[in-house]
Design a protein around this nucleic acid. Structure first.
Lengths: 164, 164
DNA sequence: ACCGGTAGTAAGATCATCTGACTACTATCG
DNA sequence: CGATAGTAGTCAGATGATCTTACTACCGGT
């Protein structure tokens, strides 16, 4: 392989100096790719990554569009649009929210549950590879640390707890 | 504040059970938001987040479009398109790559460097908040762990080192 | 009852990204 | 040296993702 000036700077010496944003992007993106792989392997070719992002945030008892929007950090219009697509494809259903006449709850339909059952093992597989590479302590530490960061970095959570 | 069925499930009991992908998304997204804040505050209103993602990956000596595409995990057409926009806006310049007659190097122009000087403190501010919240050990550990994950999770890096 | 705030939908516009295709250059091999 | 496989970057067309503005109907507090 020909090594030229534009690539020679890409070796290990840079590894410690990458911006945190770039470092966070890589595993995040890998898990999204795994999600799409899991879906594709199971034949679910009609769910886009943006839809999957929304679907992943639907609570067991159902979630409102506005809540999904906040959790995914998109506008309610975007969330509504994606929910609409998911509903059309049979992944979710929308039912009235018994506690508020304006609202509706988005729930996973059977197809949505089935798709989730294909995504989870794909994610587990990637996480197992990470576990094998960095060890169980680091893995647990990572989850802990990210959970702590969420306390101050998640605009949705800050809104809810009044920490903002 | 009215607590209803759709929101009552969002409390602290769920915190330990969030998917890793969601946990990674939150800080990642926060840093992207900080980037855009830093730019806006300095008056750079003509750089989009996708452009910023590309610009962030330009090496000091310049980078090829294909390399930027790999690093940002988009197609070369997308990278080229974003570089074109950055060039038009004066953030980057493109010069011939002396080592390959087909290629060109994308370098930060003066405006690009100036914009980067506004982004960095905005990122540093957010990271300082994280540091204050989780402590220096966890912060260092996080960077280490993410750096290790990059070794196996970064398709670009795997290509380069032949680990794939 | 009034009013400020909120849930969700409509409409229009822009940004982000992909696939397929092509030309020109590079590196390798016989 | 010529042939060939592979690569860098550009063109063209299409689609997905997201935002802003606006609006109607419902909710909760005074």
């Amino acid at each position: 392989m020909h090594v030229d000036a534009s690539t020679s700077a890409a070796g290990a010496p840079d590894a410690e100096e990458l911006p945190l944003g770039v470092l966070l992007f890589i595993p995040y993106r890998a898990l999204e790719a795994a999600t799409m792989d899991g879906l594709a392997r199971a034949g679910y070719t009609d769910m886009t990554i943006a839809q999957a992002r929304i679907a992943a945030r639907i609570d067991p008892g159902g979630s409102r569009v506005t809540r999904l929007a906040e959790a995914a950090q998109v506008t309610k219009q975007t969330a509504g649009f994606l929910v609409e697509q998911l509903e059309r494809a049979g992944y979710v259903e929308r039912v009235p929210d018994p506690t508020d006449g304006r609202a509706r709850l988005v729930k996973l339909a059977a197809r949505g549950h089935a798709a989730r059952q294909e995504i989870l093992p794909a994610l587990a597989e990637v996480e197992a590879q990470w576990l094998a590479h960095i060890g169980p302590e680091r893995m647990a530490h990572l989850r802990e640390t990210l959970t702590m960061l969420r306390e101050i970095a998640d605009p949705f959570l800050k809104d809810r707890t009044g920490l903002k």
